[in-house]
Design a protein around this nucleic acid. Structure first.
Lengths: 116, 116
DNA sequence: GCAGCTACCTCGCTTACCGAGGTACTGACG
DNA sequence: CGTCAGTACCTCGGTAAGCGAGGTAGCTGC
């Protein structure tokens, strides 16, 4: 029934999503997830995907993170884009755009009204 | 280094690609792969991804397949879209479009010139 | 005390692509 | 004749990454 499942499509885009959200804000993990949910409910990535992705990006040097005492709550880990991260984001965006245009090229292959 | 890897992005889109290619042609597997390579070299899905996908779609009733004697070569399995397959394709296209627009919404979140 | 919220993290399961390998038939080269 | 190359099919093990469920911890309210 379900032809393309969201969770399969999501594979590989989680990094892009996180990098984009952090482009000009410093946020903690939980907040990143909320931000994505607000912007596009359909993407709602789970914590089981989010935290490994944050750690991966941090290990790679794309993100810098610092612990902050959460006021009236548990401690928080704040993430922001490093200089290297900006480069990674630019690459990721370019890769995504070219991928989308490639898929679009194939998807429009057999359509009658190509120039709708 | 590589931020988004093509093979991760491809996850989930292979079915869409195959369905689109078969929209108004009856082709055999090898030919489908060639068609996709021609249309978008960057997508070049491997046979290890293609054949399982064809079988999956056939089992699901989206594709109908028949054996044909290959003239001057090995036997071939020809695939075409079933009526149900057209519905699946429409759904898949819709799902893909909405996914792309969702990712786009997040990707454009922090960009200065949102309305170029 | 217990439930519920925020916030973090981890683990096992599953899905699906990749590369390498294998079968089978044809045609060309030496 | 053996071998290689091409077409066409298929399968298998490895891997990457999202998902759901679970666990820790601190605070708030009944």
């Amino acid at each position: 029934m379900s032809p393309l499942s969201r969770s399969q499509l999501l594979k590989g885009t989680t990094e892009l999503l996180v990098l984009c959200i952090l482009e000009d804000e410093t946020l903690h993990g939980y907040e990143i997830a909320q931000r994505i949910r607000e912007t596009a409910a359909g993407l709602a990535l789970s914590e089981g995907a989010l935290y490994p992705t944050l750690h991966r990006l941090e290990r790679r040097g794309a993100l810098a993170a610092t612990w902050g005492a959460g006021e009236g709550g548990p401690r928080r880990r704040y993430y922001r884009l490093s200089d290297e991260g900006r480069g990674v984001l630019a690459e990721a965006r370019a890769e995504w755009d070219s991928f989308v245009s490639d898929v679009g090229a194939v998807a429009r292959t057999g359509e009658e009204g190509i120039r709708g």
